[in-house]
Amino acid sequence: MRRDFITYCFGYLAALSLTGIAFACVFYRLLPPVQTFALVLVLALIQVIVHMRCFLHISLKRSARADLQLILFSAMIILLMVGGTLVVLFNLSARMM
């Protein structure tokens, strides 16, 4: 009980602070746009992992293999599809210039 509760609290606080940092960077324009966006993306990635870990209870050790396999496979497919789409369409639009 205690431990589960702490996990959720940790997740919530981590999510709030990661979000807070991201918004603050943009709001106060701490960095140039490109770096800001890169930082925001990194923070988002960390936050996704935090959510997976604390709210969705996926972890490397405890969870059943099936769930983790599934998520990693999906991540690969998403990377392929999104990456591929961006490469192909940016390539096309570059050649239309």
């Binding site: 390539n91 050649r95 239309m96």
Partner: peptide
């Protein structure tokens, strides 16, 4: 998947 549209104009 792109082999279905080689002729669309990619490099």
């Amino acid at each position: 998947w792109l082999h279905h549209f080689f002729t669309m104009g990619q490099s």
